[in-house]
Design a binder for these strands. Sequence first.
DNA 1: CAAAAAATGGACCTGCAAGTCCAATCTGGT
DNA 2: ACCAGATTGGACTTGCAGGTCCATTTTTTG
Lengths: 202, 202
Amino acid sequence: MRGSFTAKGQATRGRIIQGAAAVLRERGVAMMTLDDVLARTSTSKSQLFHYFPGGKDELLLAVAQFEADQVLEDQQPYLGCLDSWDAWYRWRDTVIQRYEEQGDHCPLGSLFLQIGRNTPGARAIVTELLRQWQEHLATGIRAMQTAGHVPASLDVDRTAAALLAGIQGGVSILLSTGRSTHLHAALDEGIMTLRNAASAAI
Amino acid sequence: MRGSFTAKGQATRGRIIQGAAAVLRERGVAMMTLDDVLARTSTSKSQLFHYFPGGKDELLLAVAQFEADQVLEDQQPYLGCLDSWDAWYRWRDTVIQRYEEQGDHCPLGSLFLQIGRNTPGARAIVTELLRQWQEHLATGIRAMQTAGHVPASLDVDRTAAALLAGIQGGVSILLSTGRSTHLHAALDEGIMTLRNAASAAI
DNA sequence: CAAAAAATGGACCTGCAAGTCCAATCTGGT
DNA sequence: ACCAGATTGGACTTGCAGGTCCATTTTTTG
């Protein structure tokens, strides 16, 4: 199927996805129409349905995947080497900056509320994203343990899970209220927990 | 305006809101139509537009308010008297149970993604809910300080904010993945933070 | 260079769901 | 009992957005 697309076809397909993502950030899922996407990408209906035979749902799913890939990329290279307190703080700043810039549109969240959890594809995308994200955090914590900055007795998975939850909640509150206070608090608390665990263990 | 509704009218209005809330939990915002609501509540179009002249948006807003009121109520009486470790754990169990039962539909989240943050009404509802929620948590933490279980040096507002963020994120992950692991972790970490602060201060 | 396959343009269809309207019925006050 | 205003029923309109179709152009391939 996908192999039958030529290079030009792939390019068009990609353009449609990116255009849809842009429209989505501007207008939100509820307000986005296929015609918006066509207008923005200078493509025609037949093209859209040529590359996304499943119609709107398939397109939204593709955009969801596109946005999901972006999330972790935007946190690099910091998320990949959380091996010192300084690295953790730099990563924290990156996260906060990214989501403050994003403003009050959450492509992923709204997307998959629209697509619905029922569709297996949507759920898989989010689940996989969260899994990778948490794994990065856990790896970072383990690195700190290895370096002796955090006691080995700390429950890595639970700490990472809690931190990830805090971030998610912080972002979702930022979307709701426009204030990044909670995201800030969640990140600071999370890192502080690591540090306190360290000092408490002394 | 509202005063001109008779008792019967108010009852109908209420029925419509509750019916809409039910439909919403079942089918999700994207899939809900006014006709669904009419069918479920045995009312007619003219009634719906009589009580909600603003149409669908106004109805959704009313449902949002209805659901928001529910959220804190469901956590009572525990949320109101977080003055011992035992009380905190009972509250935690209540929260987890409530959201595990709710399954994978978030009336508020989806609602106000649909209505959009742009509308002032929607934003106000969520902001106020979060404010009250966090205030309850802060009050609880202060009670623990007063009782000497938590050191007075603890930054109450930040801790409460982080805990609230963790809950929000935990719930949103529960909605996405169907697993309550993160909600669990966030609550446990949050309470553990209070306890560790206590022991660290000794 | 010719045939086949892919890519594109855009008119058209269709169904649905929000919102309108008016006539009919009920209810509460005097 | 009577009247005004509130309530209700449901047919009708309307616009839009998703999806179909086919003719045309471009590209690949042999």
